[in-house]
Each structure stands twice: as structure tokens, then as C-alpha cells.
Computed example of a mutant assay.
Amino acid sequence: MPSSRSPWSKRSLTAQAMGHVDPITKGVVPPIHVATTYIRDEDNAYSSGFVYGRPDNATIREAEEVLAMLEEAEAGALLFSSGMAAATAVFQALDQGDHIVASKVMYWALRNWLMTEAVRWGLQVDFVETDNLDALAKAVQPGRTKLVWVETPSNPLWTITDIAAAAEIAHAAGARLAVDSTTASPVHTRPLTLGADIVMHAATKVLNGHSDVVAGALAGAKADAFWARIANIRKMQGAILGPFEAYLLMRGMRTLHVRTATQAKSALDLAQRFSAHPKVARVLYPGLPQHPGHDIAARQMENGFGYMLSIQVSEGEAAAIRTAARVGLWKRATSLGGVESLIEHRASIEGPGTPCPPDLLRLSTGIEDVEDLYRDLDEALRG
């Protein structure tokens, strides 16, 4: 989009939030628009383009414009009150009886929703290892499957699905492809340019990057009837993001490129060093050549391989839990993508039925000194 609409790069446009300036004060940071209702014209029209706060807001539009630019989304972007609100809106836009194929390894809360609420609404869901294209092709049923949902890299094993190949499989069967690209971010992967129809972000994570906003986002390849239905679901259910949260999200996105560059560099450094650690049985990170999805990741990711990795502790589950208890700089907390580094024993969080190994620790790499991060976790592993 920058090449056709602006002479500036995506990094420059993001840093200046598309160059929005307050038309009244000329402030380089636009005001937060909190009004919920707007004046009609004398002819009963709304020449301002705004009617009511539930479906629309000027601050939200500005943040959506930045994200649409980053994702090269022809249909634009829609901000939601959470990542779950954004993701579930896509499934709610389907019809009763529609068949869905989804990644077996994915964000646990959404997987749980698909196994419970989606089924109660009459949707049929099959979970497969979408990094296995043969398994994906067998699971997709031409004429019946309406949506293929892929998370890549997948949380918390960081498996890689070939987005372009998955799009071909989905489209050949008459289905849409939606990609949860939360952990990649548009800095590392742009699924719409690889053939996806919709990309989803839990914007709470690296898009905001400061652990102070809960938000979700969708970006669409085409403004078709399905996209309009999703927008109407957001409107009717009141799932739009608040204006203050949209302002914070836009502020966070201004530093997205510099944050992700530091985080990805540190994550790769840590992955390489812990691969040789005597207390670590395995490191899961797509930037490592030994990762099963490395070659695909190298094709569809750019500017690094992201900020998320996991380690499997060689002495098992109890040792993993003890390690998490011993850290000082790493923070024992859920979520990911913030400027502070987080560590979590995911199997404890997800509970029975999780595909997460019990010896696994999920690491979200922040922007701290990488030597401090390594030393802290090394000492915790060694006890």
C-alpha cells in the first residue's frame, strides 16, 4: 500500500500514525474522540460521516487505517474489544451447519470456544495439524468446509503453516482462509499478500506492546458480503474497541518496527544459546535451522522470526515449574508481546486436553538487555 498511496515506507507511516494531525490545534498527536452521538444536518443527514459511538469512532478509524496499511488490506481493518471478540466474530458470520477446519495447536481460549460454544451454535469443527498439508487437504471438504482457520506460528509450539499452500487448499474447496497472525505481526508476515482472506490479531499483544490494552483486530482482503457481515456483527453486538484503548493501541503501533526488531533479535539469540544448554532438552523457535518449519518460515516471514519461543526443560515438568519460580527479571505472567519478558508454564494454564508438553516453558521476549535475560534464565535452570 505505501508504494501506491504514499512515497514513504510502512515503517515511516507507522511511526507517524499515517501522518494524522489535529486539524484545529495542528498537534502531531490527534485528540481522543470520546463523543457517543453526533449532530444531524438540517436536512436530517450526517455529513460528518458519524452517527453513533457503538459502530464507529474517529480515533478508532485512525488506528484501523494504520493496521490496514500494514496488512495491505483492501477491505480495511476492524478493531474489536478483544482478540477473542475479533476471532469469534469471524465464526459467528458463518451459517449453522458450516464446517470449519482449524489448527490443532492454537491459542487455547479460542480452541476451547470452538469446542464448546461454536458447536452449540451448530458449527462443525475439525482440528488438524495444519503444518501437515496432506492432513489439511484431507480434512477440508469441498462444498461443505466454509472456513479454514490457521494460526502460524502456533502458540505455544511455534509450528509453521504454509499460508500460500493453505490458501490454495481452502480456495479450491470453496472455503475462506483466516490466519491468526498475532505472534508474527505484520512486521514479520502479511498473510493477505500470501492468499489469506482475513487476518486476525490479538492486538493486546505485540501490536500494542505495552501490556496496558485489551484489543483485537481483523483485516480483510476483499470488501465482500462476508466482510460486511462481520462488520455488522461488531456493530450489533457492541464489540468495538473503546476510543481511549484505540489511542493507546495507535501509540503502541508507532514503535512497532523498532520493538519487534529488538525482540526478534533477542529471541533468536536466546534460542541459539539455550539449544546448547545442559538443562534444556529442546528449543522451539522457527528461526532455528533444525526447526521443522524453518524453511517455510524463511519464505513467508521477513525481518526475523518473531519474539516467541519455548524451551522444554530436560528434567521434566517439576523442574520446569521450579525454573519459572526462580526467575527474577523474567516475569511469571500470561500474555505475550510486551516490552517486558514473560515466562509461563503453559500446561498448568491450559489444563487437561492441552497439546502442550508438561515440560514446556513459554517465553515472550521483551526489549531488555539480552545478556540479562540469558543470565537470569540460565541461573533459574541451574537452580
Rank of each mutant, 00 (worst) to 15 (best):
W149V: 01
G383K: 13
P23F: 09
G174A: 11
M69G: 09
R322A: 15
S364Q: 09
I24Y: 05
S9R: 08
I311T: 02
E350F: 09
Y374P: 00
E71V: 00
F91E: 04
I233E: 05
A102K: 05
E340A: 15
A68R: 04
I32V: 15
P191F: 02
K104H: 05
S266N: 14
P55K: 04
Y52G: 01
A239V: 02
A320I: 03
Y247V: 00
D22N: 15
R362M: 14
L147W: 04
H294D: 09
E344D: 10
R54Y: 14
L194T: 05
P292C: 10
I349Q: 14
R40P: 01
Q92C: 05
E368F: 12
S185E: 01
R251N: 08
A63P: 03
L79Q: 08
S154I: 07
M200F: 10
P156N: 10
Q312H: 11
T37A: 12
A223L: 14
P286N: 03
Y374M: 10
L110K: 00
L133M: 14
A17H: 09
V283H: 06
G238E: 08
G351V: 10
V34K: 14
V339N: 13
E74C: 07
L284R: 10
L309R: 04
D131H: 14
T323G: 03
H171P: 06
E151S: 11
T182M: 03
L157H: 06
T159I: 08
F274G: 03
G143F: 07
I60S: 06
F91H: 09
M308Y: 06
K235L: 02
M18S: 07
T365V: 15
T183W: 00
H188M: 02
L381V: 07
Y38Q: 01
E302H: 05
T365A: 07
E72M: 03
A139L: 02
T204F: 06
L78G: 00
D212H: 08
G122T: 12
A196G: 10
A225K: 06
V29M: 08
Q124I: 13
Q312G: 04
D126V: 13
A175E: 09
D134G: 09
E350A: 10
G143W: 08
T183L: 15
A63H: 03
R375G: 15
A139W: 04
D378C: 08
